[in-house]
Design a protein around this nucleic acid. Structure first.
Lengths: 127, 127
DNA sequence: CAGCATCCGACCCGATACTG
DNA sequence: CAGTATCGGGTCGGATGCTG
């Protein structure tokens, strides 16, 4: 306690970055990074305009706070997403895409378009 | 066959397809399907030409038999990959892309191109 | 050659509760 | 509002051994 803060554990964020030698292949590395359930979805959302935390949370509708935070932090660490804190009361945090993120948005959108056109279009989500 | 064989377990293949309501969104569903370490890589490999099982195994170099088989089976079930068994001795199995798979190859290749051009190109893999 | 069976660890992911 | 802490399951993924 006198150590002021027992946040030494750091639970799990922001990812230990194991980086096995296999990930030396840039293609494999990218797929490992984006190869989760939410990353590409978040990038698509942020491609339209910047969003606040709870906006994203509602837009994706099904993602947990934990996963949203994790995904955003990882994307930020990868230089794809920007995080801007406005020192207001209550606080407001704005997320957007970096230039790199916007360039990645292009092929990801192509993938999303394929999904919309080729899957059974039973339902539309917020994207 | 003597029903004595308790193969009731079926281990895990070919994936129970949970399909939560969240996956009603085609974009989310696609990312859930391809959101693993190998699927897109296999599709890229198969995009060049058909490959035999061990060819893929060597080309990807790092994937286990288990994961290669699992990935191929899932992609086959999704109608993206074809599996052709030639009744020779020893047996030979050829994997290729369906029409749907070839159409998906386009946006996936765009993603792979982005990876090659935007990541630190430390190493090239077999792709 | 092209798998399947089994064990097991690592990580993804959600639910819940709590905080500045 | 925008997170953090903790628990617990399900899945990803590899290693090893065996088969037609």
């Amino acid at each position: 306690m006198s150590a002021t803060h027992t946040s030494v554990l750091a639970t799990e964020l922001p990812r230990p970055v194991p980086q096995t030698e296999l990930d030396a292949c840039p293609v494999s590395a990218l797929f490992r990074r984006l190869g989760d359930r939410w990353s590409m979805l978040v990038i698509i959302l942020l491609g339209g305009r910047t969003h606040r935390y709870n906006e994203l949370h509602r837009a994706i509708e099904g993602i947990s706070q934990r996963m949203l935070t994790r995904t955003l932090r990882t994307l930020e660490a990868d230089g794809l997403v920007t995080r801007t804190v406005h020192p207001t009361v209550p606080p407001s945090v704005e997320y957007g895409l970096t230039d790199r993120g916007r360039s990645l948005l292009v092929p990801i959108s192509a993938l999303a378009d394929w999904a919309v056109e080729n899957q059974n279009p039973s339902g539309r989500c917020g994207t």
